[in-house]
Write a protein that binds this DNA or RNA. Structure first.
Lengths: 223, 223
DNA sequence: CTCGGGCGTGACGAGAACGTAAAGAACCCG
DNA sequence: CGGGTTCTTTACGTTCTCGTCACGCCCGAG
């Protein structure tokens, strides 16, 4: 999902936020000073930056303005200061939101969601394999520009392969991710499923170029 | 500059905000109830909507969701309730910011600036699909150049699909966005609703070209 | 050559999901 | 209060999904 950078010199708070965010499928990095925040942000290109205003050394407002110079990440300020003038300064420096400590983790998460909802990550995850086009976000498959209709199971299997293009996926892994935990030995399901998939997606289903069988092991999406 | 819609049943507050915003070159409209807010928003296409959660009659959360159905406006909630659960509900319903009363006019203005800075250019609000023309901002649908009348629920569902053309929208997501949170399993509503929509929008309702069913999953607007 | 395991393919059918019409309930507006 | 619109609910025939089965192919081992 999204990447978040937490910047605060209170290591206990950083730890708590990191855990809370990770639980909700965010990728989390952290920094404990202004300069460190800038270099880390340059490296990991976070979607959201949570920044404490009370950093030692560098002024928090300056950090925000520096980030705004080259990053379009959403910036949420976490601050112990409730003074209106500080809020106005931070927001006008380029922050997107301002949250006064203490705050609840649920509110923070909701604000992170609100702020990320606005900026759909530029790179839409479209996997291309020859004349196939698999859009994982839109749940959409095109072959030679034409929409192909897939059933839920067909899509689930294709999506598993498309998330790791070129990589081999074992029978057991496919069965568990498509049918659910508890399945793992019913390889006959896979045979009929892939026959149907190839009929829809391959120009010549009898000599597949993308949905490749690895005998005795699993299947693979070849680009 | 930007257009702001103020929605609150406290007329003194509305007056104060209107004056404060006009001083800073905003064009200001106002409404004092949920339904009035929806119709006014449809007419003036505000860039920002300030909405009180404590409106009489209509639930504030529902107003937000209804707006989100077709409007790209930034929504800032003004509320007397500081409870975290309320904030989370409002933000997840589609609000961009949540401000607890009492607040300073300077902070409000800074948050309005922050939120408008983010959305400089509204994306093309007209979606074309064959002979269909869906104007999300104006809340209008034309088929082959002729205006088609849609009921509120019909429009809400079509708007949800049109906001992400080509993308599959699940049953649950549609039910939540059209009927409200708490719905999610009543797929029979969707069946009758889409039957009516197709009768109005498809040249041949029995073989739809734009309102596509994905059995067991949801629907999609195909261009 | 024969055998057997892994695989692809087509056909079938039970059950789930869908489209449609129609009737009843709720709502609105004058 | 009455007429029109919109939404909900029900019912029924149709379509779709996917597990099942039967069969044939390929290939390496014996």
């Amino acid at each position: 999902m999204s990447t978040v950078l937490v910047v605060d010199d209170d290591r206990a708070l950083v730890r708590a936020l990191t855990i809370g965010l990770r639980v909700h499928d965010f990728t989390v990095h952290s920094a404990t000073s202004g300069p460190e925040a800038l270099t880390t942000a340059g490296k990991v290109h976070p979607d959201v930056i949570l920044v404490d205003l009370g950093l030692p050394g560098l002024n928090g407002i300056e950090v925000i303005m520096a980030l705004r110079g080259w990053s379009d990440a959403a910036i949420i300020v976490l601050s112990a200061r409730p003074q209106e003038a500080v809020k106005v300064a931070a927001l006008d420096a380029g922050a997107d939101d301002y949250l006064t400590k203490p705050f609840g983790i649920d509110e923070l998460l909701a604000r992170v969601r609100a702020v990320t909802r606005r900026r759909p990550s530029a790179a839409e995850p479209i996997v291309r394999a020859g004349d196939l086009e698999i859009d994982l976000a839109a749940r959409r498959v095109e072959r030679a520009g034409r929409l192909v209709h897939l059933t839920p199971k067909e899509w689930a299997a294709l999506a598993v392969l498309a998330r790791h293009p070129g990589r081999l996926v074992t029978h057991q892994s496919l069965l568990e991710q498509v049918w659910g935990t508890g399945y793992g030995t019913e390889t006959e399901y896979l045979r009929t499923l892939f026959a149907r998939l190839r009929r829809k997606l391959e120009a010549d289903p009898s000599s597949p170029r993308h949905l490749i069988t690895e005998p005795g092991v699993g299947y693979r999406l070849e680009l």
